[in-house]
């Protein structure tokens, strides 16, 4: 009797200790993040205004802005998303639903997981040889977007597979029992049900891609660029529609602009860098928030 009581008490003590440990870990991690954010905001927040968002880089820190950088970031990410999502999701579906399990697919699976851990600069080197020189895409938004797409492909594939695997087997069996083809099962059931999980993976990937510098510098992203890529619709002098001309344009991105400012002399440039950092954070957090909303909505629609 006494023994059991002692055991229970000991268990409770351990429980409480673990609880405190967990809390401590969370506090350390969160306060580090908070400190980082506050620091960025204190330095940079006052610098963010309309002028900052709509100006090109300049040697005068007060006149400098991040227009070409944020437009570049968004366009590069657009190319990345348009490439990595269809390719990654399709590959994930294939591996999970179609491919037979044999040594060959096992090797592919292991490699995909390993690829997620390859340093990003390696992707940059590959892209420099492949996209920039072999395919003659040049130092363009297309090259940059494709590079980042390759970088996040493993993340998207793994997320897709996890999401598919989480769908109960009886859903598939029920659909097959009613005579659905494999394509119909994927289209009408598996994809909609796994959209939330896939979306999460995609957003994690995109959030990573948007902060990448090394591979883009490797393929030759620029630092000073005081013009925007050609607009898809030109009104002046004559109405012209050139929907994809921007994709071959040279570019810069937010992290590169930040990196350049950090390494310049003068407090003012540091302020600019911090301000660009805040914008980058807002974009990333905004993307994450959007993903959470979308996932929540999709989840609500699904009723098994």
């Amino acid at each position: 009797m006494l023994d059991a009581r002692a055991m229970i008490a000991r268990g409770r003590r351990r429980d409480a200790a673990f609880n405190i440990l967990g809390w401590a870990c969370a506090v350390v991690v969160l306060s580090a993040l908070a400190a980082l954010l506050t620091n960025l905001c204190i330095q940079g927040l006052s610098r963010i205004d309309w002028q900052f968002l709509t100006s090109f880089p300049s040697r005068r820190p007060q006149q400098a802005g991040i227009l070409s950088a944020w437009v570049g970031s968004i366009l590069v990410i657009l190319v990345t998303a348009c490439t990595a999502i269809p390719l990654g999701v399709a590959a994930g579906i294939y591996l999970e639903e179609y491919a037979r399990k044999n040594w060959f697919t096992t090797i592919i699976e292991i490699n995909i997981v390993n690829l997620a851990g390859v340093p990003s600069i390696i992707y940059g080197l590959m892209a420099l040889g492949l996209f920039v020189y072999q395919f003659h895409f040049g130092q363009s938004i297309l090259s940059g977007g494709l590079t980042l797409a390759f970088l996040i492909l493993p993340i998207v594939i793994v997320a897709t597979r996890e999401a598919m695997r989480a769908i109960p087997k009886h859903i598939r069996e029920a659909a097959y029992a009613l005579g659905a083809t494999r394509l119909e099962v994927v289209r009408h059931h598996l994809l909609p049900y796994s959209a939330g999980g896939i979306g999460t993976g995609v957003i994690i990937g995109i959030s990573r891609a948007i902060g990448e510098t090394a591979p883009l510098v490797t393929i030759g992203a620029l630092t000073f660029i005081a013009f925007l890529p050609p607009s898809p619709i030109v009104v002046d002098p004559a109405l012209q529609i050139q929907p994809f001309k921007w994709i071959m344009s040279p570019f810069t991105v937010l992290p590169i602009q930040m990196f350049n400012w950090v390494s310049r002399p003068g407090e003012e440039f540091l302020k600019n860098a911090a301000a660009a950092g805040v914008v980058l954070m807002v974009v990333t957090l905004g993307l994450n928030a959007a993903a959470i909303v979308v996932r929540h909505r999709i989840r609500r629609r699904i009723k098994w």
Binding site: C82, P86, V89, A90, P243, F244, K245, I247, M248, S249
Partner: peptide, 19 residues
């Protein structure tokens, strides 16, 4: 997805026409 694939295809198509 089909639309996305089409976009990517079109993009690759115009890749040759530079600046």
């Amino acid at each position: 997805f089909t639309r996305a694939v089409l976009v990517v295809g079109a993009v690759a198509g115009i890749a040759g026409s530079a600046l």
